[in-house]
Amino acid sequence: MKSFLPILLSSLLLTACASYEPTHVGLNPTLGAVNLQTELDFPVKVETIDTREASFVVRFNDPDTTPRLVSTSEPVRQQLDKLFRDGMIRAGYVVDPAASTSVQFQLNYLLADVTDSTFSFESNTRLVINVLAKNAQQQLTKSYNANGYLKGPLSPDFATLELDINQLIDKLTTEILNDEELHQFIQRK
């Protein structure tokens, strides 16, 4: 009887752990290599907004049930805002909320669509960020896109999905922050 109790408790604990499904994805994008664009301490107003229609970033699709939607543990807008501000500073700009030249980064779309079958999974991730730059006379609007694809055995673990999404964000934000056309427009008088 004494040996039965630990076995029972262990099996209950393992069952509880096996049925646990995280409810949030923890993203942690990092700033990639940003080239110096100006040495003139050029002032620029930087703003990041989230224009997505839905706040979730992962959708698990199962033909037999309704999709399971997973959001981030921290707002993506805040994480992107920090990345873009740090990137603009690293590019040589002075971030100034009163500057006449402004750059607005708009998170337009971020979603990892995961299809989970019995023995494998597929994840298609899409990221779209629009940039609206304005100076006293003109404005420039550009759209940047990135797509990711991930395939693996069994079911995806959240760490793998998080890494894939973070790498996609890192790649696209680095591309945006090093876009010569954008920097030429920002520095135009």
Rank of each mutant, 00 (worst) to 15 (best):
R188S: 14
V57N: 02
Q37H: 03
Q137D: 06
D50Y: 06
I49S: 15
G32M: 09
S123H: 10
V58K: 09
R52Q: 03
N130H: 10
T48R: 09
T125C: 11
F42W: 04
T174L: 03
T174A: 08
Q184R: 10
T48Y: 05
E39V: 13
Y109A: 12
L13P: 01
V114P: 03
S123N: 14
R90S: 10
L168H: 06
F119S: 11
Q139L: 08
V94H: 01
K82P: 01
T38V: 04
P22W: 09
T115G: 07
A112Y: 01
A136V: 09
R59Q: 13
N124C: 00
H24I: 02
D96M: 02
P63N: 11
A136N: 11
M1T: 10
A146L: 03
T115F: 07
E122L: 08
T38M: 05
F84R: 05
V70L: 05
P153K: 06
P153R: 04
L40A: 11
L172R: 02
T173Q: 12
I49W: 10
V131A: 04
L111C: 01
T118M: 09
Q106E: 12
T23R: 13
N28M: 07
N145L: 08
R85I: 09
R52H: 01
T48V: 12
F119W: 06
I49V: 15
E122G: 05
Q167V: 02
L110A: 08
G152C: 06
N130A: 14
F60N: 15
K82Y: 07
L127T: 05
S55P: 00
A146T: 03
I169D: 08
S123F: 10
G26K: 10
D41G: 06
P97L: 05
P43K: 11
Y93A: 03
N147P: 00
P75F: 05
F121I: 04
R90F: 00
V131Q: 03
R188A: 14
Y93I: 01
L69C: 03
D164I: 03
D50W: 07
S117F: 02
S155H: 07
S71Y: 04
G92I: 04
S117L: 04
V103K: 06
L80Q: 09
E39K: 15
F84Q: 06
E39S: 15
T141M: 15
E47G: 03
A54V: 15
L111P: 00
D96V: 01
P153N: 07
F121T: 04
L111W: 00
Y144Q: 11
N28P: 00
Y149D: 06
N166G: 06
P75I: 05
P153D: 05
D86S: 12
T65S: 12
I169S: 07
M1E: 12
Q79A: 08
D170Q: 13
L172I: 02
V94Y: 00
N35F: 05
G87L: 04
P43S: 08
L140S: 03
T23A: 12
A98K: 13
S102C: 03
D113S: 10
Q78Y: 12
N124G: 01
Q78E: 14
I89S: 12
A136S: 12
T174R: 05
A133D: 07
M88E: 00
I176S: 04
S55F: 05
K189P: 00
H183N: 08
T173K: 08
N61V: 13
F42N: 02
S100N: 14
